[in-house]
Design a binder for these strands. Structure first.
Length: 491
RNA sequence: GUCUCCAUCGUCUAGUGGUUAGGACACCGGGUUUUCAUCCCGGCAACACGGGUUCGACUCCCGUUGGAGAUGCCA
């Protein structure tokens, strides 16, 4: 039997990093077993439906670069793959359950249910009053003019046992379970419970990999399979992804929406590599995995049971790793949009930005954790840094006057500096430092500040090449003037 | 409250009765280096607690504590 798994998001919100982890595990599980990965849109909540959310699903996976084998956009023999287009199935099977005496119509008003819930002190407790009501007793309720729901006749004794691939076996006393959950809402739409069971069966899903938050509803699903006379799929509940406080990951922890990670400059391979490792491991050594490698290495047996904290720092490290590993062309293409939209390049022509970036790629690749940092990293190449504190130019253990003297000696070396190779420049500055009996750093740090405006920058000679000889000389001259003025008033 | 699940360094984790409890991120030192970063080397740091079972428990059982999820005409 071929393995068939599904990712079944509901288009009510933007794709969350935790949901996508579930999608990834499903995808990898399918690939590792030469199976089929299905995308099914669970849009049975008409109130919360959002077209943007639907589009976000497609955009997210386009970006991440892994796809489903069957789905609304590519079809498949088990379609349609959008639940709102499958209404006939749910009503048919719900009616089947009613006819077989496993479900019934209920005519409660929202107010009555709210009152019951309050009386039960938040403990659920539906009173099941329509469960076995006679036709005669039912009549007045039918005339209330409200659209009924269909409720499941949940068992009132016995136990239900779930066998899970990662968690093992767990059992519930049926009396502890919610009383007669709703299968079909008053608007005629199925609830998740009915729709998911019917669809998973019809679509011949063999394994369900979903987050542990679904565990409490698993017994209901099992009971439904039983009433339908179907064999349930294998369950595999995935550990939750939480924030550093152990709570469900949310906005206050940082980015949670997947495309937000793209906006911040994360590479899809970093996201995939990171996500694969939260709640799953390969062995006691390996951290780096490509999607292709994961497709053959993934094993459900290695999924962990306990919740995992989303570690943004580790993601940063991985992202830096993949940035360093990218080819120049790839990195250039990836970086360009970030640089263009950066404040550092406002008013700069597209060609000029691209030319500068092309030259800067080798300079920044080992210095970036995210693509979004590019503007900050080479902003000095686009506009003259004027705001810096002039005392920054003065190296440790030197006075302002001594620094002025040193920089004056260096100015002649600036002629044609951007046209010389790093090796030539380095040799030149080393000779000079030796001749002046000072450290190389004492020559270069003041220059670095003058040219880039910061003590932290890409390698000096490369940075100077981005700026050009003329502009470098202008910046140094200007900084030197400021330093002289400072030196005069602060002897 | 009730039900269910979970519990190894700060974090992600390896470990399946006998290990100096391993790796990675982060952090702290050191080296390379024109700053930063990269890279290399080193260090810090964990089996929640209490009972059992056993010759022997991080590993098995029970309890406690802690955490999480669920308790919807949302998924």
């Amino acid at each position: 039997m071929t393995v068939r798994v599904r990712y079944a998001p509901s288009p009510t919100g933007l794709q969350h990093i935790g949901s996508v982890r579930t999608a990834l595990f499903n995808y990898l599980f399918a690939r590792a077993h030469a199976g089929v990965f299905v995308l099914r849109i669970e849009d049975t909540d008409r109130d919360r439906y959002s077209a943007d959310a639907l589009q976000d699903i497609y955009d997210t996976f386009d970006w991440l670069g892994f796809r489903w084998d069957e789905g609304p956009d590519c079809g498949g023999e088990f379609g349609p793959y959008i639940q709102s287009e499958r209404a006939e199935h749910y009503t048919r099977y719900a009616q089947h359950l009613v006819d077989a005496g496993h479900a019934y119509y209920a005519y409660d008003t929202q107010e009555e249910l709210a009152a019951q819930r309050e009386a039960a002190d938040g403990r659920g407790g539906y009173d099941r009053r329509f469960r076995d009501m006679s036709e005669a007793d039912l009549a007045p309720y039918r005339d209330r003019g409200i659209d009924p729901v269909i409720r499941f006749k949940s068992p009132m004794d016995g136990t239900t046992t779930l066998t899970d691939i990662v968690l093992g076996s767990m059992s519930w006393e049926n009396t502890d379970l919610p009383a007669d959950p709703i299968l079909v809402k008053s608007d005629g739409m199925p609830t998740y419970h009915l729709a998911n069971v019917v669809d998973d069966h019809l679509m011949e899903i063999t394994h369900i990999l979903r987050a542990q938050e679904w565990i409490p509803s698993a017994p209901l699903h099992l009971q439904l399979y039983d009433r339908f006379g179907w064999t349930p799929p294998q369950y595999c509940h995935l550990p939750m992804v939480v924030g550093e406080d152990g709570q469900k990951l949310s906005k206050r922890h940082g980015a949670t929406r997947v495309l937000e990670f793209r906006e911040r400059g994360y590479l899809p391979e970093a996201i995939i590599n990171y996500l694969a490792r939260v709640g799953w491991s390969y062995d006691d050594k390996r951290e780096l995995f490509t999607l292709t490698e994961l497709e053959s290495l993934f094993a459900a047996e290695k999924i962990s049971k306990s919740p995992a904290v989303f570690d943004y720092q580790k993601l940063d490290w991985l992202n830096g790793h993949y940035i360093r590993e990218a080819t120049d062309e790839r990195l250039f293409d990836a970086l360009l949009p970030y640089l263009r939209s950066s404040a550092a390049t406002t008013g700069v022509g597209d060609d000029a930005v691209a030319d500068t970036l092309r030259a800067a790629v080798p300079l920044v690749r080992e210095r970036l954790k995210t693509l979004g940092e590019i503007g900050e990293a080479i902003g000095f190449a686009f506009s003259r840094p004027d705001g810096f504190d002039i005392t920054e130019m003065v190296p440790k253990k030197l006075s302002a006057a001594e620094t002025v003297a040193l920089v004056e000696k260096v100015v002649p070396l600036l002629d044609g500096i951007a046209e010389r190779s790093d090796e030539e420049n380095e040799a030149l500055f080393r000779e000079t430092a030796e001749r002046l009996d000072t450290k190389l750093g004492n020559l270069l740090m003041p220059l670095r500040i003058a040219v880039t405006g910061s003590r932290v920058s890409p390698p000096l000679f490369g940075s100077i090449r981005l700026v050009g000889t003329d502009e470098t000389q202008a910046r140094v001259t200007r900084a030197l003037d400021r330093l002289r003025a400072y030196s005069a008033t602060n002897p």
